[in-house]
Write a protein that binds this DNA or RNA. Structure first.
Lengths: 118, 118
DNA sequence: CCGCATCCGGGAAGATACTG
DNA sequence: CAGTATCTTCCCGGATGCGG
């Protein structure tokens, strides 16, 4: 449809896992089945709306499996697919990296901003 | 400043690397020094504005080093820092993954949409 | 050649309230 | 419990033009 070349594969990655909350959800759902409210509580700052939307998109792309148990009260479980599990390590690498270099990056940013305020 | 917990590290990754063009730029600049126009040509679809903005942000976070050669015409080279190189493999993994499963994901999406159109 | 300034539209995402 | 619906706000990102 578009005149896009191969360059946009990086773009495609982010279309799947680049959402604001996708990584956190995938990592959580890769450890085992998780429920909606469980995710809502464990992912700090996420809104009910964004959780629902992100879950839908991840399910749509085949990264998450949604299972509904017709019980009362209703119960829905999400679990990462094999496809999603393939990038689990990479996602953890990125998360760990961000965590370990948080201070370093903040310092670089502060230094840059200080120079810009000249 | 914030009351954010540890949960948002995934968020932080994307703040650095989750820009629309960040991955493509980091991967390109990890192979060796690249010039502005060079990036503009090699990254399909990027605008001059977004290239400049993304380069600035990556430099600000200490992921890219910017070197200006005071020549005529001016010459500016960008190269990935050691910090950015640490996630190079993970980024390549994600890119490769997206490329290999492109069809699979598209199919999952199509199937999902077909069911939704019921 | 390498950017920055400005204008502007569209989608992302928060707040809030309501349902099966 | 597991979502929808609506409304609003914000900022990403494209287009264009200027400047060192």
């Amino acid at each position: 449809m578009e005149g896009m070349t191969e360059e946009c594969t990086a773009r495609e990655v982010l279309d799947r896992v680049g959402g604001k909350w996708s990584i956190a959800i995938i990592v959580a759902a890769a450890q085992g089945p998780v429920r909606f409210t469980e995710l809502e509580r464990s992912i700090d700052g996420i809104s009910r709306r964004m959780l629902a939307l992100t879950l839908r998109n991840l399910e749509r792309d085949g990264l998450l499996t949604r299972t509904v148990y017709p019980t009362v009260p209703p119960k829905v479980e999400y679990v990462a697919t094999d496809l999603a599990r393939e990038i689990y390590d990479a996602l953890v690498t990125l998360t760990t990296w961000a965590e370990r270099h948080r201070a370093e990056i903040a310092a670089a940013r502060a230094a840059y901003d200080r120079r810009a305020a000249s």
